[in-house]
Design a protein around this nucleic acid. Structure first.
Length: 594
RNA sequence: GGGGGUGUAGCUCAGUUGGUUAGAGCGAUCGCCUGUCACGCGAUAGGUCGAGGGUUCGAGUCCCUUCACUCCCGCCA
């Protein structure tokens, strides 16, 4: 028999009554009646109420034992009387009559309570992460994460994929995020980099003939944090497949996501075949390439309205003349909304750095008219045209943003989200997946006006490879795609360019000659020259998937030992100083010694 | 690098227009209590009001500087 327990704290029921049991766990809560003491004993599996009274010689000692101490309790199961049953507890029909107990791990006074559903400052939570992780919600999130990863592994094997590890110490890559560097002792003055993603390795795996690869891969990027982005490290479900087209990748990912989200959430999937939306369409309808399709609001371009003689909205007309665009967001049946609703949205837009949002509501007496501060600028005819473009009806309202195309897309995308929230239009019980496809291969850099890769330089351009018009690089689309769920970008992926000659041509457009490409991507280009299969893949973010499933807004709620915003691990005290000896061995000198 | 928010007891927070000795709940300690499950009741301890400087007769409160945490922009092929 195990020395510490015969059962865990989650599995005793009235079936076990009269049995002698041993339980070990944490003292979750005490209810001390002076001569009678209830103890909720907790372990990973649940809570069990244990009782002791003053006739027991251990009573005084147990009464004084701190919460969160680890104890071993020996006792007998008794069935609770009907009035004392706790229906909220799996083990609520029984309790353990304590015979003896022993402290296995003493607990000092707690810096933060474990028994509480209150929110605490991140600082204290991260410093005492081991205590924080005992708390119910996050404990369950972490267990969920483990189950999700295990499910993904099984499913990927089922779909014919093999998991391979790729190096953690690798070479610094010239493009992309900032690298984490690791000095090499044996190669003084040289550095390894931690992989930003196993991108080149997974392509090499395809060239090596393994056909279908996946990995729950750690990725390291030295960039600033966000609520949904850990500083430093995160995990991807990295996958790559040979002899596939874009749709083949979609099939695999849809199968995985649908089964995963059905298993781990009670929320319904809005689409079982994820809509394919072109980048262009997404930008024009939603103002972003990560649209939340639960949000029914649509954006329309009504720039042309402001070239009409019978529209007198001079501020917008002037801007339009100098190249500005006007985007509208339609809200249905909002004529009964108070003025403050509209003004708050306008004020919010100004807080976002935009010049604000004009608005009016369409009414009809004898004639059509626009009500609102700028309503008077629109003729009846112009309103009819607006209604045609936007599908607006009498009683609906329109919010208008005007400015440079990038700015107006940005603010209308944010406004779409904001207004939907205000009007409570987002169905929180649904998951809405979609694919964003047909990304442009190149884009013009704002400042320098230079042509550069818009996403992954290794992506395959669309169309007949022999007939690509390299003279018009901005027209070239790539087999490059994103998967988005509820407005969260889960991943980018692509069919890769496995033809070195084509790669040189594309890199030339972005300003790299052959020698530079050979130098920068030595391993890749070389490998592709020895018989590379057509291949492609994607790498959905594990952390964000778990966030969606756990209904959390912050990635630290699904990460066991996250770093804070300054990329410090408060539990372990990382990063930390190192000794002179270590630096010397690595051939390093610190420039600014403190 | 920039912008916003927060910082008061171990924890979560209140603290009015600048005004006497800075409060509450939880936790801790002590006492009472044999059916609780957020047990109850009573008492005690616990504060560099993030730090520094300034204005003022007087600063938790106003001003300046600074630090920490957090959210956002930049960044994240």
């Amino acid at each position: 028999m195990n020395k510490y327990r015969t059962h865990n704290c989650g599995d005793l029921t009235k079936e076990n009554k009269d049995q002698d049991v041993v339980l070990s766990g944490w003292i979750h809560k005490k209810r001390d009646h002076g001569n009678l003491l209830f103890i909720d004993l907790r372990d990973n599996y649940g809570l069990t109420q244990c009782v002791i009274d003053k006739s027991n010689k251990f009573f005084k000692e147990l009464e004084k034992t701190q919460l969160e101490s680890v104890v071993k309790i020996t006792g007998k199961i008794v069935q609770r009387s009907k009035e004392t049953i706790n229906k909220d507890l799996k083990t609520g029909e029984i309790e353990v009559n304590i015979v003896s107990f022993e402290i296995l791990g003493y607990c000092k006074e707690l810096p933060m309570p474990v028994f509480s559903e209150q929110d605490y400052a991140e600082e204290i939570r991260l410093k005492y992460r081991f205590l924080d992780l005992r708390r119910k919600k996050i404990h369950e999130n972490i267990i969920l994460r483990s189950k999700v990863i295990s499910f993904i592994r099984n499913k990927m094997y089922e779909l014919g994929f093999l998991e391979f590890q790729t190096p953690i110490l690798t070479s610094s890559s010239p493009e992309g995020a900032r690298d984490f560097l690791v000095p090499s002792r044996l190669n003084p003055g040289k550095f390894y980099a931690l992989p930003q993603a196993p991108q080149q390795f997974k392509q090499l795996i395809m060239v090596s003939g393994f056909d279908k690869y996946f990995q729950i891969a750690p990725c390291f990027r030295d960039e600033d944090a966000r609520a949904d982005r850990s500083p430093g490290e995160f995990y991807q479900l990295d996958l790559e497949m040979s002899f596939v087209e874009q749709e083949d990748v979609f099939q695999v990912v849809e199968k995985l996501m649908i089964s995963l989200f059905k298993k781990f959430s009670s929320k319904k999937l809005l689409y079982e075949k994820f809509p394919r939306i072109s980048y262009e369409e997404a930008m024009s309808k939603y103002g972003t390439d990560k649209p939340d399709l639960r949000n029914p609001l649509l954006i329309n371009d009504i720039t042309n309205i402001f070239t009409r003689e019978d529209v007198k909205f001079d501020i917008f007309k002037k801007l339009v003349k100098s190249g500005a665009k006007v985007k509208s967001i339609l809200t249905k049946k909002t004529n009964d909304k108070p003025r403050s609703f509209f003004d708050n949205v306008d004020k919010w837009a100004k807080d976002q750095g935009a010049s604000g949002l004009a608005y009016f509501t369409i009414e009809r007496d004898q004639n059509l008219s626009a009500k609102g501060p700028v309503g008077k600028f629109f003729s009846e005819d112009s309103l009819k045209d607006i209604m045609k473009i936007t599908n607006a009806e009498v009683g609906d309202s329109l919010f208008l943003a005007c400015g440079k195309i990038e700015e107006v897309q940005n603010i209308s995308s944010l406004a779409r989200e904001k207004i939907a929230k205000e009007l409570n239009l987002i169905d929180e019980t649904k998951f809405a997946f979609c694919w964003i496809v047909d990304y442009p291969m190149f884009e013009k850099e704002q400042v320098t006006q230079k042509i550069k890769f818009s996403h992954n330089p290794f992506s395959m351009p669309q169309g007949d490879i022999k007939n690509i018009d390299f003279e018009k690089p901005l027209d070239i689309k790539a087999y490059q795609y994103d998967i988005v769920c509820n407005g969260v970008e889960l991943s980018s992926g692509a069919i890769r360019n496995h033809i070195p000659e084509l790669m040189y041509k594309l890199f030339f457009i972005a300003g790299y000659d052959k020698n530079q490409v050979d130098e920068k991507f030595k391993g890749m280009i070389n490998a592709l020259s020895y018989g590379a299969p057509p291949h492609g893949g994607i790498a959905p973010g594990i952390d964000r998937i778990v966030m969606l499933l756990a209904n959390e807004k912050n990635i630290r709620e699904v990460t066991m030992f996250p770093m804070n915003q300054n990329a410090q691990d408060l539990t372990m005290g990382a990063p930390s100083k190192v000794s002179e000896e270590q630096l010397k061995e690595l051939n390093l000198n610190l420039k600014n010694k403190k």
